[in-house]
Write a protein that binds this DNA or RNA. Sequence first.
DNA 1: GCCAACGTTGGC
DNA 2: GCCAACGTTGGC
Length: 156
Amino acid sequence: MACRYWLFKSEPGAYSYQDLERDRVAEWDGVRNYQARNMLRDDIQEGDGVLFYHSSTTELGVVGTATVVRAGYPDHTSWDPNSEHPDPKSTPENPTWYMVDIKPTGRLAGPVTLARMRAAPELQQMVLLRRGVRLSIQPVTEAEWQMVCHMGGANP
DNA sequence: GCCAACGTTGGC
DNA sequence: GCCAACGTTGGC
């Protein structure tokens, strides 16, 4: 897959865009879904763009952008029994789960809400809007990236 | 390898 | 809080 743009979902109660701005760099750990793992491990490259989406909150939508600063590497929290998502089957020698590091590149001037995206004819093919898709990491096309950034009043 | 039961996600 | 949709688990 030669995708250069992605959408990462996060519940702002757990980790918000504001948290990312505070931290400057975030290890995107804790992903425990094989489809998402494959993208983290195989496809997401340094320099790729990330739409940061807030889920399970009052204002659903993309609130900012980020960029990948480190491509996929083993998620060390998976073999830490005290982490939030331990997996006894994952070891340093044979890791099951992967993560990337991202840093914020700018809050959108206005949030691009889920409702606005649903209403945009240009975005009808977005993975996010597909019925039943719950992936927390999704590929985004360049056209979709441009459109969301445009709708958000950003120029990354 | 099938598939029912269960757990999770996430919008509403 | 509800529930549709999906992923995972485990008995057979």
